[in-house]
């Protein structure tokens, strides 16, 4: 059985690609066969976050148009044996992707025995976002604890329940999960930032992960190493937890409290 997971958000810059890359790596490291696909046609980025930008020869649109085989376009990860990246096309033609084309590629991946297909959605609610979510079995909605991100996520939830194959065919609903990113326990404690409970209450979804705000995310993208692979980082642990929950584990949420500081750090704001 192949499960298709869309990573979506509505708003840009909230961490969809970071999340797609880390979830894909997390699943891959658990021995699952994973393909992660960049749906952001014209604005390819997943390859950079995955660190395989110089190995892109063929892309998603090339496969659909028959310029190459799926095997030729899939970039095998150098760290994880069972992980493959399919890059977005840099074409400016937004119509290069179609529902039929996407279906064809998914069918071939299913045939090929992939356990997971992770679809990294573009921002917005236009065609690219629609195609990324259309065939999904499961959705990870990435949200920052901030008003515009929460509102946009609610729009996306509306689309997931009306404009997807499962909705149109009246099949079982897509499983939807909330993933909070850039969470700052210190600012939540001082009442400057909405808490997990606040966002959960407004959107009415279960929370699959809370990723703390951290400079490690930028360092990871600078280096082209998905942040989940930086095992020293709390961000990595938080993503590992999210992946475990995706696979059915029940784990308490971590990193919701500000880490306790020593005396000197408290005095001098270290």
């Amino acid at each position: 059985m192949t499960e298709i997971i869309v990573v979506t958000s509505g708003k840009g810059g909230v961490g969809k690609t970071t999340t797609s890359a880390s979830v894909a790596c997390g699943l891959g490291r658990r021995g699952k066969r994973v393909a992660v696909i960049d749906f952001d046609i014209g604005l390819r980025n997943l390859d950079l976050i995955m660190g395989c930008e110089r190995r892109v020869v063929y892309d998603f649109v090339n496969v659909i148009q028959g310029d190459c085989t799926l095997k030729q376009a899939l970039i095998k990860d150098k760290r994880i044996e069972t992980l493959f990246v399919l890059a977005a096309s840099q074409t400016r033609d937004k119509d290069a992707l179609s529902l039929e084309g996407v279906r064809k590629v998914f069918d071939e991946m299913i045939e090929d025995g992939f356990d997971y297909i992770i679809c990294d959605s573009p921002a917005g609610i236009e065609k690219g976002a629609h195609l990324a979510m259309y065939y999904a079995d499961r959705a990870i909605v990435v949200v920052n604890p901030e008003v515009s991100s929460v509102r946009d996520s609610d729009r996306i939830l509306g689309l997931l329940s009306s404009k997807t194959q499962r909705a149109e065919k009246g099949e079982e609903k897509i499983k939807e999960h909330l993933l909070l990113t850039r969470y700052s326990p210190r600012r939540v404690a001082t009442g400057e930032m909405m808490s997990v409970a606040d966002v959960k209450e407004i959107l009415g979804l279960d929370v699959i992960g809370v990723i703390p705000e951290s400079p490690d995310v930028l360092s990871a993208s600078n280096a082209g190493t998905p942040v989940i692979l930086n095992e020293q980082s709390d961000v990595s642990k938080a993503y590992e937890d999210a992946v475990a929950r995706l696979l059915g584990d029940t784990l308490p949420l971590r990193f919701l409290e500000e880490p306790k500081k020593g005396f000197l750090a408290r005095m001098f704001g270290g």
Binding site: E146, V147, V150, R151, D154, V188, T190, G191, E192, M193, M194, S195, D198, E201, I202, L203
Partner: peptide, 16 residues
């Protein structure tokens, strides 16, 4: 900074 999380939550509850 003034605590504004509650304002955000209330505004979102209504608009959503």
């Amino acid at each position: 900074a003034p605590p504004t999380a509650n304002v955000a939550k209330e505004r979102l509850r209504i608009i959503v």
